[in-house]
């Protein structure tokens, strides 16, 4: 079988779609982000999200978030039945703008952290976590 010009183009398009796909989030996640930011622009970077690359048990996945000068950090799990995970609001006595906890992930997916900075701007970070056994029951 010879590869025609048309096949090559189709392959190229497919590859392009695959690379774009991981950055697309579910509608529920987009809604949750919009509710938190009020539709404001969200810059990439400025937030540290620590999560394991591979989580054997989706029932307890340790994560840590930190963002210098953040007033609040929202954590979302884009592939869960309900994307919301937690929102950390830091008070005047917070020693650092960081926190860690353990979360449930239904399957391999992106975990997203969005920080609301003290000056009203927003920043985000996301990380893909591979989950061997999902943590939402069935």
């Amino acid at each position: 079988m010879s590869i025609t010009r048309r096949d090559t183009l189709a392959l190229g398009l497919g590859a392009a779609a695959l690379t774009i796909l991981p950055f697309r989030l579910s509608a529920a996640t987009e809604d949750a982000i919009a509710a938190f930011t009020g539709g404001a622009d969200v810059a990439d970077g400025g937030v540290d999200l620590t999560a394991p690359e591979i989580a054997e048990n989706g029932n307890t996945v340790p994560i840590a978030v930190s963002a210098e000068g953040a007033a609040a950090i929202l954590v979302l799990a884009a592939g869960n039945p309900t994307p919301g995970v937690a929102e950390f609001k830091f008070g005047p006595l917070a020693g650092s703008h960081s926190a860690s906890t353990r979360i449930r992930l239904a399957g391999t997916q992106d975990v997203v952290a969005i920080a609301k900075m003290a000056d009203g701007s927003f920043a985000r970070a996301s990380k893909t976590v591979k989950v061997t056994i999902g943590g939402c029951g069935g």
């Binding site: 029932n59 307890t60 996945v61 840590a64 799990a77 869960n80 309900t82 919301g84 995970v85 937690a86 929102e87 950390f88 609001k89 830091f90 008070g91 917070a94 020693g95 650092s96 960081s98 926190a99 860690s100 906890t101 353990r102 979360i103 449930r104 992930l105 943590g135």
Partner: peptide
């Protein structure tokens, strides 16, 4: 700190801050 939790927080919720 003031944390709002959803159903995706694990059993026996743990926080470190």
């Amino acid at each position: 700190i003031d944390v709002t939790m959803e159903a995706a927080i694990s059993t026996n919720p743990y926080f470190e801050f």
